[in-house]
Amino acid sequence: MSHDDHESHHVNYLAVFFALCVFTALSVVFDVLSFDNHAVTIVLVMAVAVAKALCVMMFFMHLKFEGNWKYILLAPTTILAIGLPMALMPDIGAVYYTSKSPQKGAWAAEMAEYRAHHAEHAEEQHTETHESDAEHDDEKPEAAADNAGH
């Protein structure tokens, strides 16, 4: 049985498990640290994910001790895994023109108004109707001016 080949490679599974726990904790720590440039967080966290994946693949799935067939198997899948996002990136991922979608155009003004209004009411808890009426009076001319502009 081919399993005899693997008897001599005694893997300390517990050690690999602890390494995985440390990596998981590390990725949560990176998230909590919240760097100014979010891209830094993403790169670090994805690096940790790759490290965890390698631990699982090499040791738990025993690929470190298998033959060269593992490359034949994983090469096509890796090519496709990287190729698909690369193929879609120029059309969907890279946005190199100003989006004219109506959602994005109307979004900013309306959402700002909604958020301001919502925040006020969350604090007031429906008590001061006079204040909110005054706000509506302030907002109405603005809304009317925006409509005249559109």
């Binding site: 899948t77 895994a81 996002p85």
Partner: peptide
């Protein structure tokens, strides 16, 4: 099983790869 896992990798990278592309296109929004 390994051949099947190869196809499963392609299956999931389709969804995950697409999500990555779509997430990048969304950007700050």
């Amino acid at each position: 099983m390994w051949l099947f896992l190869g196809t499963e990798i392609m299956f999931f990278t389709a969804f995950i790869g697409t999500y990555i592309v779509v997430r990048i296109s969304g950007g700050a929004d």
